[in-house]
Design a protein around this nucleic acid. Structure first.
Length: 519
RNA sequence: GGCCCCAUCGUCUAGCGGUCCAGGACACCGGCCUUUCACGCCGGUAACACGGGUUCGAGUCCCGUUGGGGUCACCA
């Protein structure tokens, strides 16, 4: 049975690169009928873990990346918070000391730094002299008498080669002599990440460590810990990281300022902000941007689209298939089709996946997605009435693929505003009505025609307008633009006849009257 | 700087020695459709980083160069 894990730190947000890693771990587990474990790396807990973890769990759940063991769901290998597992780490440290694979070290950070500086000055690799290493109780007492405190360091080999068979990278070799005697336990007794990670992976019976490439150079020390403890090694798979838009540098939340200067990134952000404003959502650039998964949820992206895009960022099935649903990804995913080179994050391409997934959504699902936005914007009562739901669904049908993210429904807010509160795009009003020769008269006459229409549906309306322009002997463009501005206040929108049908007869007439009245 | 990783259109990628004067997708540029917008349809521009090998034959294998990146914490 294969077991993979994702081990986020409670940072308060779910990073898009982290999600990609989680997704690959999850897909691999699901593909092989294995288990996916979520473990929280909170060894240096300064903040409120629960609070900082909530968005991460919520984000994973929203994306449909579910875990078999971990926070909330429990499991046989808990607790799943590293902060609650220190006894295990302590036992591992003791064992390492007992086996002489680690030692107590009494050097101060300044002393270590001095050695490091000296090595750099002499242009040689830094290797700790182990001058403050204490392997006997005597030595310990002597150093402690000087007022020193001990950390525990790994006693790394100083010769030989580690040969690693990485599932993605193939054979990778490291010279042991270049590895440092890393600290695994602080003077205060708390343990460091690498120790904890190895101990937990073993305890949780992780078979495949699938993580981002930046951990590749950390692997030797982890292998050393595992081997020193007599653990069987897991399989390693180091994924390429997700890079910045248009660059090969690792995507980082710390460089947001730079990304905001990227055109596509910036316009996605602006789109999101305009939706946020209308629903009264407080946003900060720090938390509301395309690097953070919450952003997509809040503006109404489809989790399926995000998953599809992210899966293709570093993995592919063949030379043409790009549109995947979760099921298909699970069916086809394999690590040997994962790329080695980093892939840069492209907001525009992500949007195109969103478009395609949105297009195949049936109207009732689209309506359900969109309703919360209308409610939050105060355009329909919350909870929506059955009549509202029906209207929204009709709107969703008429809107076709114009609603690209759920929040886009707010572009059609004018359907929900009272007729006497409709605002007008003055430029469009001038161009199409006020200064368009004959527009006002035509509009007036067509209003009369409209008043006679019995069945106010798109087909009937289309026939009557065509009959009207034929009788008038004018091209359809002469009136249709004016009509649109009159009933929606805007120069662009849905199909004209859908618009009228959606509004219904009395509201359409009232809006035409109001428009004519303000010329 | 040491070590490690990586290298096909602007971007994501296909390619696992011949079927590649390199295929698909997004973007871009034309055109069509059309009541606006959004779709849709048709067409187009655009890449094997460079240099050596190996081979009858290299985008594909090897070496080097260049370039890019990761990592070198008592962070995770």
């Amino acid at each position: 049975m294969f077991r993979t894990r994702f081990a986020p730190s409670p940072t308060g947000y779910l990073h898009i690169g982290g999600v990609r890693t989680a997704l690959f771990c999850w897909l691999f587990a699901r593909r092989n009928q294995g288990k996916f474990i979520l473990r929280i790396d909170d060894t240096d807990q300064e903040r409120n873990v629960e609070e900082a973890l909530a968005p991460i769990l919520a984000g994973l759940r929203w994306l449909g990346i579910d875990w078999d063991e971990g926070p909330d769901v429990g499991g046989p290998h808990g607790p799943y918070y590293q902060s609650q597992r220190s006894a295990l780490y302590q036992a591992a440290v003791d064992e390492l000391l007992r086996r002489n694979m680690a030692y107590r070290d009494y050097a101060t950070t300044d002393e270590i730094q001095a050695e490091r500086d000296a090595a750099v000055g002499e242009k040689r690799d830094f290797v700790y002299s182990r001058r403050w290493m204490a392997e006997t109780p005597d030595a310990q007492r002597r150093f402690e008498a000087e007022g020193r405190a001990a950390v525990v360091r790994l006693k790394m080999p100083r010769a030989g080669t580690l040969v690693l068979e990485d599932l993605i990278r193939g054979r990778v070799e490291f010279a042991w002599a270049r590895e440092q005697d890393h600290v695994i336990q602080r003077a205060d007794g708390s343990c460091l990440y690498h120790l904890a990670s190895v101990v937990d992976d073993r305890a949780m019976e992780i078979t495949h460590v699938i993580r981002a490439e930046e951990h590749l150079s950390n692997t030797p020390r982890q292998v050393f810990i595992a081997q020193s403890l007599g653990y069987e090694l897991p399989q390693y798979a180091h994924l390429p990281f997700v890079a910045e838009p248009g660059s090969k540098v690792k995507l980082s939340k710390r460089k947001l300022d730079k990304y905001f200067k990227n055109r596509d990134f910036a316009s996605l952000v602006e789109h999101g902000r305009s939706i946020a404003r209308r629903i009264g959502l407080e946003t900060s650039p720090e938390e509301f941007n395309p690097v953070v998964v919450d952003f997509y949820r809040e503006v109404g992206f489809l989790p399926e689209a995000i998953v599809n895009y992210l899966a293709l960022l570093g993995w592919s099935l063949d030379d043409k298939t790009e549109h995947f649903h979760r099921r298909e990804l699970i069916e086809h995913f394999s690590l040997d089709r994962v790329n080695k080179a980093p892939a840069s994050f492209d907001a525009v391409k992500l949007q195109s996946f969103q478009d395609r997934h949105m297009q195949e959504l049936p109207p009732e699902r689209k309506a359900a997605m969109v309703i919360p936005f209308l409610e939050r914007a105060g355009l329909i009562p919350a909870p929506a009435t059955a009549a509202d739901r029906a209207r929204v669904e009709a709107l969703a049908v008429a809107a076709g693929d114009r609603i690209k993210v759920a929040g886009d429904v707010l572009e059609f807010a004018d359907f929900f505003t009272p007729d006497d509160e409709l605002s007008y795009d003055e430029k469009a009003f001038d161009k199409r009505i006020r200064h368009s020769a004959g527009a006002v008269e035509l509009l007036g006459r067509f209003r009369a025609t409209l008043a006679e229409v019995e069945l106010f549906d798109a087909g009937t309306l289309e026939r009557s307008l065509h009959a009207f322009v034929e009788a008038e002997g004018v091209p359809i463009g002469q009136i249709i633009h004016a009509l649109r501005v009159a009933v929606t206040g805007k120069g662009v929108g849905l199909g004209m006849f859908d618009t009228l049908a959606l509004l219904g007869k009395s509201r359409s007439l009232r809006r035409i009257d109001r428009a004519l009245g303000r010329v």
